[in-house]
Design a protein around this nucleic acid. Structure first.
Lengths: 338, 338
DNA sequence: TTGAAAGCGCTAACAG
DNA sequence: CTGTTAGCGCTTTCAA
């Protein structure tokens, strides 16, 4: 901590030194008013010499703009979150990014209350999470745009990913390979945040089977908690069935690992005896050769950032809802059944 | 965006409604002055009724505290960064966390300039990165504490991890297993941020060998760029030597994966013919059974947060430098040589 | 194109 | 325990 005996140099100091008023200094700083070239020079020089930095706080109080954008997201999104955060930060260079954790619904609620109450942000992103009605209500009188990433809402713009089609596509790949006994290990259908990912991916699975004229067997549908351990157990159950599936679609890569472990533990070879399909395209999926579905996170965040900038500029919401398609990445855990 | 025709309710509104002055309202809001219970009640009631939220911007301008803490870190720290961020956010509930990307040295410089110039934060963390002299100079007149996480500096407090000992420990494990021909694939020794991780881990390797009376063979030392691909190539080279090593220590798990792939590609079995050791304990290391060194990131961040709170409270730096020890996690890629 | 001056909403002496 | 009253540092009409 430095000895900050010297008080901050303010816009007054600059004004005095350059022989103009603070109004003029302000004008050159913000560059959105006409200032005589000569005057500008003088001011710039003074700024330079005094090593002056305008106080964003004071500016904020005066013009009610904080130059800050908030992001509410849960940490359990892990790599996805990081990816999105990264591109958001780099696309939104003019703004500081404030991170609001919302690891559980209550934290999320608190954040919504705080953020809408203070009403100081210039924009807000929700990533991965939906906005509940009670939350939406709070944002009614807020002065900044809100954009949902990887989720949607009628009253806000959003960029989301089509989980149903991603799943549909993935299962179709299995069907194309000739599989008929395809099982799915999905995520918890009810969750504290009211996410619909699990349901959507299951829906895509059903659609794909039906579209191919295959029947959906309930015993092939396992509802799991997104965990690797859970998937391990359920895969063992599936593989112990009288008619075990020849392919298992795990709706997350983490769960796919569990399936792989289950297969190994039972001497079932992948992909010879069993095809395993994941979802997410995590780093380890590449290392482990897992066939999976990749989400265009980078583009999602980029589009989100652009939209945010537009809406901030317009001062109003465009209510645009963009849906992105994920893509299949075929690797080494899927093959035709024997 | 709501129709915010209604102007923000201010501390004046609350004061009027509760029949006191703004000073008193301020007092009950901040709770650090004595206010008569009855008065407090009235004020609270008014706050409630008016749904009043104090403006942190106005407060900030007045008392020069932003209630915001910055974090400068590079995104390539991936999971580590996320982990640290997570615990920082949860430990520093009173503060908003602003994330400053510093993916390259120049961005980092810019951030240092901006942040020190504006001088508005209540605290700043550097994670994973060192503070260069030219940067340190800028922070001389800054009013907030700065703490380094996973790095150190004479003028700032820090919590770091002992890479040398981590490496030493890891290699000792190999020696204990009976290995004598131990190779290392390390990270780039020179890097744009002037990180010393690679050098430190190499040093620990040397120390361990020397301490055990083994000689350090230059041909067993590979300098790599932290990439899996690079490690793959170098591992192949090592395994092609006339006297190939019986163990390879990759200074990151990502590189360990490359080594594993190289071994597989050459029909070398792990751990029977070759022991592979990583560093980092990434998620996939568990899945892939890689023996590795784990860093106590959670504790690191926790200690960092506590220190920050203390220093903010004290209004001065304690210049504490804590060093944490990483721990070995033995899994399935290491065994005694045959 | 520039200056004067009134805020923005809150805090913190200082008095009482 | 509470009120008065300067600011905090910048922006923005309104005039000139």
């Amino acid at each position: 901590m430095g000895e900050s005996n010297k008080k901050k140099t303010t816009i007054y100091d600059v004004a005095k030194r350059s022989g103009v008023t603070t109004a003029t200094v302000s004008r050159v700083i913000n560059g959105k008013y006409i200032v005589a070239a000569a005057t500008r020079e003088k001011v710039m020089k003074a700024i330079e010499e005094l090593n002056y930095y305008p106080s964003p706080i004071a500016a904020g109080l005066s013009n009610r703009k904080s130059k800050q954008i908030g992001i509410v997201a849960p940490f359990f999104f892990g790599p996805f979150l990081l990816r999105i955060l990264e591109t958001l930060v780099s696309e939104l260079k003019e703004y500081e990014i404030i991170f609001y954790d919302s690891g559980d619904p209550d934290k999320k609620r608190q954040t919504c209350i705080k953020v809408s109450g203070e009403n100081k942000l210039d924009g807000l992103f929700f990533v991965g999470l939906p906005v509940l009605v009670e939350e939406e209500v709070k944002f009614r009188n807020v002065k900044f745009p809100i954009i949902l990433l990887d989720n949607k809402h009628n009253n806000f713009s959003s960029i989301s990913i089509d989980n149903i089609m991603g799943s549909f596509q993935a299962v179709n790949h299995l069907v194309d390979l000739g599989h008929e006994r395809i099982a799915i290990i999905t995520g918890a259908s009810e969750d504290p945040f009211h996410l619909t990912v699990a349901k959507d991916r299951l829906k895509g699975y059903r659609m794909a089977l039906t579209a191919s004229g295959l029947t959906v067997h309930d015993e092939y549908i396992m509802i799991n908690d997104w965990s690797r351990e859970g998937a391990y157990k359920q895969a063992r159950k599936l593989l112990s069935l009288k008619h075990p599936p020849t392919a298992i679609f795990a709706v997350s890569d983490r769960q796919a690992v569990g399936v792989l472990e289950a297969a190994r533990s039972m001497g079932v070879r992948v992909p010879e005896d069993l095809s395993v399909l994941g979802f997410d395209d995590m780093e380890f999926s590449e290392y482990m050769g897992i066939t999976t579905v990749a989400q265009p996170l980078h583009i999602l965040a980029q589009l989100g950032a652009n939209l945010m900038l537009e809406e901030i500029g317009l001062g109003s919401s465009k209510k645009e809802n963009i849906v992105l398609q994920p893509g299949l990445k075929v690797r080494h855990t899927t093959a035709s059944p024997r």
